[in-house]
Design a protein around this nucleic acid. Structure first.
Lengths: 169, 169
RNA sequence: AGACACCGUCUAUC
DNA sequence: GATAGACGGTGTCT
């Protein structure tokens, strides 16, 4: 009996984690763009609440900007930094920028391997900031290959973009 | 009347000039390569004839070799040495080699500033020969930045290379 | 250290 | 067909 009670306080958050799926869209590239994110809050294997869906548009942007922006907005929404997060995206630009490329950029003073300035610096910095003191796992999924969360994020981004193009601001 | 006639013989060629745009391509570098050149013959501000386009490929070469080779072939094609020529290229290697570096190479006995032998010596000598007793202006244009002649020469070089790679010799 | 060019690869957006 | 971005490299010179 006491053993069960002893484990109880930690188990309150022990199994909690967030799962985020993000995607970006851009008509023209550069051009008007949209972003979408689907956020799941898990407790073990059960959803703690309704999935949260975020989306938005930007008048003049690029495909990659929208991919980064979707992740920023999703992470910014999840304020509790003690709960681990997994971010899923079909953008290797986003995933590798947050994992393997980061170190080299810092070491080279925000230059790419070929000496050019790294693009979208402000967005990268914002992401690095959002990831500080937080357990975030970045995983890549192939686009349009059946992952339901990715497809949903894609739909959200495209819908936001379509709404903007139709003039519904 | 006689004044008009007096100017007539010289005015026949006075306003004539050639404009050449050249480019090179090389798959792998070193590897198989292609070159392209577009030649315009101007009389004042009017084209004297259809632009002439030259191109070709080489089985094993370098990017720089192809840049030089394109200029050689274009200049060789224009036999009348009394007509001034402007050569446009996005290769600083070609442009500077024909202008600012030439003197130093000669003074050092075909050594670079760091003492190494100058590469592609035969091609440079061929170019210097083609430029003798001839008014040639060398101008650099940034690659892929919208210059139509440069883009055309680029397309010619790439097309020649693609044809070679497809086996159409 | 700098400059220009030439590729090779990958993903996404149109 | 084209753009947005990153990685890896070579060919050449100052």
């Amino acid at each position: 009996m006491s053993e069960i009670n002893n484990t109880s306080p930690t188990s309150l958050t022990f199994n909690r984690r967030y799962e985020i799926a993000t995607d970006g869209a851009c008509s023209g590239n550069p051009g008007p763009g949209g972003w979408g994110a689907r956020l799941l809050s898990w407790d073990g294997s059960v959803l703690r609440r309704q999935p949260k869906e975020l989306s938005g548009w930007q008048e003049a942007t690029t495909n990659n900007e929208m991919e980064l922006f979707a992740a920023i907005r999703a992470l910014r929404f999840l304020k509790n930094r003690t709960i681990p997060v997994t971010v899923k995206s079909d953008s290797q630009y986003l995933i590798k920028g947050m994992t393997e490329w980061r170190e080299g950029w810092l070491a080279r003073g925000w230059r790419t391997a070929s000496g050019e300035p790294v693009k979208n610096g402000e967005l990268w910095l914002k992401l690095y900031e959002l990831v500080e003191h937080r357990d975030v796992t970045w995983t890549w999924v192939k686009g349009h290959s059946g992952d339901p969360d990715n497809e949903r994020a894609d739909a959200l981004a495209k819908r936001a973009l379509a709404r903007f193009l139709r003039g519904e601001r």
